[in-house]
Amino acid sequence: MSLFEVNDKGNIVVHGHLDRETLSKNFWESLSGNQRSTLLSNKKCQVDLGDVERADSAGLAWLINAVRDAKQNGVSMTLYKMPEKLQKLAKISDADSFLPVE
C-alpha cells in the first residue's frame, strides 16, 4: 500500500507512518501525472489524516510542504482528522498556523 491515495474528487487519504523512514520525496513529486491533473482540475482537496499511525518532525515538514506545493500549483488543501500527537507537535513547533486544519 502506498503512503497516500488520491481519489477522483481530488481528496487524499494518508496511511501509516509519516516519518523520516517512510518519506523519501515531497508530496508533489510523489504524485503521478493523473493525480496531479485531478488536483489541478478540482483546485481543492481534503487530506484525511485519520489513518496516520505515527508522525514525527519529518512528517510535519512533509505536510507543511504539501500545503505549500499545492498552493503554488493553485490547489487549496485542507487537513482533517489530524492525530492529536501530530497537532501537539505542530503547536510545539509553532507550525500550527501554517496548517489549514478543519
Results as ranks from 00 to 15, higher is better:
Gly33Gln: 05
Pro83Leu: 03
Glu5Lys: 13
Lys85Tyr: 08
Leu99Asn: 00
Leu31Tyr: 01
Phe27Arg: 03
Asn11His: 12
Leu31Pro: 05
Ala70Pro: 11
Ser30Gly: 06
Val13Asp: 13
Glu84Cys: 03
Leu86Cys: 05
Leu89Glu: 02
Ser2Leu: 07
His17Pro: 02
Leu39Asn: 02
Ser24Trp: 10
Asn42Lys: 14
Met82Val: 07
Ala70Arg: 04
Ala90Met: 09
Leu79Gln: 02
Gln72Glu: 14
Val14Pro: 10
Ser57Ala: 15
Thr22Trp: 00
Val13Glu: 15
Lys88Gly: 06
Phe4Asn: 02
Ala66Asp: 14
Leu31Gln: 00
Leu86Ile: 08
Leu23Thr: 04
Asp19Arg: 01
Ser2Phe: 05
Gly10Ala: 09
Cys45Arg: 01
Glu29Pro: 01
Leu99Ser: 02
Glu5Gly: 06
Glu53Tyr: 09
Leu31Asp: 01
Asp94Cys: 14
Lys81Pro: 04
Asp56Val: 15
Lys44Val: 07
Met1Lys: 08
Asp48Ala: 05
Gly59Tyr: 12
Glu21Leu: 10
Lys71Ser: 13
Lys81Ile: 10
Leu86Trp: 07
Tyr80Asn: 00
Asp51Asn: 13
Ile12Thr: 12
Val6Asn: 04
Gln46Glu: 13
Ser97Ile: 07
Arg68Tyr: 12
Phe27Cys: 05
Lys85Asp: 12
Trp62Gly: 10
Val75Pro: 11
Glu29Gln: 08
Met82Ala: 04
Gly16Ile: 06
Asn42Gln: 14
Trp28Glu: 04
Ser32Asp: 03
Asp48Cys: 09
Arg36Tyr: 03
Leu31Trp: 05
Leu31Ile: 00
Val47Tyr: 05
